[in-house]
């Protein structure tokens, strides 16, 4: 249904490392789930507009007035790694 390459492609997009067994299992389970979801193909959706929101509202805006920032301590208090006032991440090797 959904082959392992697709699972791996999608896992890479989602930046999730999957163990071999996980990838195998997912490829089967996702196949089943998508098979079930394919039920939606029965529905005629011509001329139906998509609903991205549960409620129809529009033009929700705020004024351009400043609010105080978080304290420096709060910003960095959860950081796994930091240096001075910065978050520190491993080297970016594409």
């Amino acid at each position: 249904m959904i082959d392992k390459e697709t699972v791996e492609y999608v896992a890479n997009l989602a930046r999730i490392e999957l163990k071999k067994e996980e990838a195998n299992m997912l490829s089967g389970q996702l196949g089943d789930i998508l098979g079930f979801i394919d039920k939606l193909k029965e529905v005629n959706v011509d001329k139906v507009l998509p609903a991205s929101h549960a409620i129809t509202v529009s033009n929700v805006l705020r004024g351009d007035s400043p609010k105080g920032p978080l304290s420096a301590h709060s910003v960095l208090s959860n950081a796994p790694l930091k240096r001075e006032k910065f978050f520190l991440v491993p080297k970016i090797i594409e």
């Binding site: 999730i16 490392e17 959860n78 950081a79 796994p80 978050f87 991440v89 491993p90 080297k91």
Partner: peptide, 23 residues
């Protein structure tokens, strides 16, 4: 993604850090 808070898997390379942290 392990950058600002929560669990981070140790890795020297960013992309692997992401994937392992989330995996």
């Amino acid at each position: 993604d392990g950058v600002q808070y929560g669990f981070r898997s140790k890795d020297a390379n960013l992309i692997d850090m992401y994937k392992k942290t989330r995996g």
